[in-house]
Design a protein around this nucleic acid. Structure first.
Lengths: 195, 195
DNA sequence: TCTCGATGTCAACGCTTGTTGGCATACAGT
DNA sequence: ACTGTATGCCAACAAGCGTTGACATCGAGA
């Protein structure tokens, strides 16, 4: 099932340029507004090349939004620092790679992108949370809550650009948000009073 | 500067139908994918009517995304229950009115919508937080953090549809998230260690 | 050197979009 | 009853989109 031809192709540079431009455009404009023509112009090639190499716009997005959270091995982290390690990791990951911003923007309107986002945060984050060992019955919910705070942080800071969230130093955000994730991960399950 | 003609027009029903259809479409599809033609079809009128009454697509969105958070008066809430009251209020508000979903979807790709979202959460939420009385120097940041968790909750539950967040009962979410908002609002300012 | 596939360019297609102007009809004020 | 305005529909426009196919050019293997 793996690629049969790992041989280097002469067009690899072009493919990479397309992918880089695609990530930039998708991150800046979202799925619909990022046009193939604009991406091709950024990559200084003809729009038809995009079609040849990636089939269609969906295929291009799928290739551009391939993403690995690269979550650290949580099993090795002191239990009390889980929250801090996680926020810091996500902030770093987010600043350095616009793929996640592209995915986030696109997931709002494109069902396929939303599906992929669900996969990433359910599989990768869920697995990481499960591996460090909480009650299996609650891991999914705990991972979901962590995702909600992480994605909310990203959404307000990188997408909407809420001034107080944009201005904040990363260290400040870590200090504020780490205890939240810490409680979502290791805190006791609260009892939902239903008045 | 107010409307000079508060007299009821014969076309008010049409205007309302357009607005209702617009909110639905914008909420479901986002700004770009929600076409004027589709909105007009839902409202069972001609696309040109939309233009006549709202000028252009941006004007229509501006009218459809007019939104008041209707935040309760936080000054009257026991300090210890601020978080709980806020989460519950937002969940209610969100389920009952798709305007916020429309705004959230659109804010990801449309600069005008993002601007409006900034306004709503900076002005309305910021003012409410300020009015219940914390240190003025930190209110903006506290409001921003609250917005990050609230919007993250909405994004994962209503937009992306993360299974553990969609399945959760509202009471359960309140129980989990309330302490977070409580700390963002009334907790001490943490010191950002910068190693 | 010849050949053939890979790479790239060009022009065009069919379609959808927001937007516009003209024309019919219905209603309100006189 | 008449007139002017508000309301509504229809047809069309220009622009932009994703996508396609034909044609040039390059580069490696025989």
């Amino acid at each position: 099932m793996t690629d049969a031809a790992p041989r280097a192709r002469r067009s690899d540079a072009t493919r990479a340029a397309i992918l880089r431009a695609a990530r930039e455009r998708f991150a800046a404009d979202g799925y619909d507004r990022a046009t193939i023509r604009a991406i091709a112009a950024d990559a200084r090639i003809d729009p038809s090349m995009v079609m040849r190499y990636y089939g269609n716009k969906e295929g291009l997005f799928a290739a551009a939004a391939e993403f690995d959270l690269r979550l650290p091995e949580l099993a090795g982290v002191p239990t009390g620092q889980l929250g801090e390690v996680l926020v810091r990791h996500f902030l770093d990951r987010w600043e350095g790679d616009e793929t996640l911003a592209a995915l986030l923007r696109a997931a709002s309107t494109n069902p396929g992108a939303a599906e992929r986002m669900r996969g990433i945060f359910a599989d990768q984050l869920g697995a990481a949370v499960a591996r460090f060992g909480t009650d299996p019955a609650t891991t999914a919910r705990r991972a979901g809550l962590v995702a909600s705070q992480i994605l909310g942080l990203a959404f307000t800071r990188y997408i909407v650009g809420l001034p107080p969230m944009v201005d904040a130093e990363p260290a400040e955000l870590v200090a504020w948000v780490a205890p939240t994730l810490q409680r979502y991960l290791t805190g006791p399950v609260p009892d939902p009073r239903t008045p």
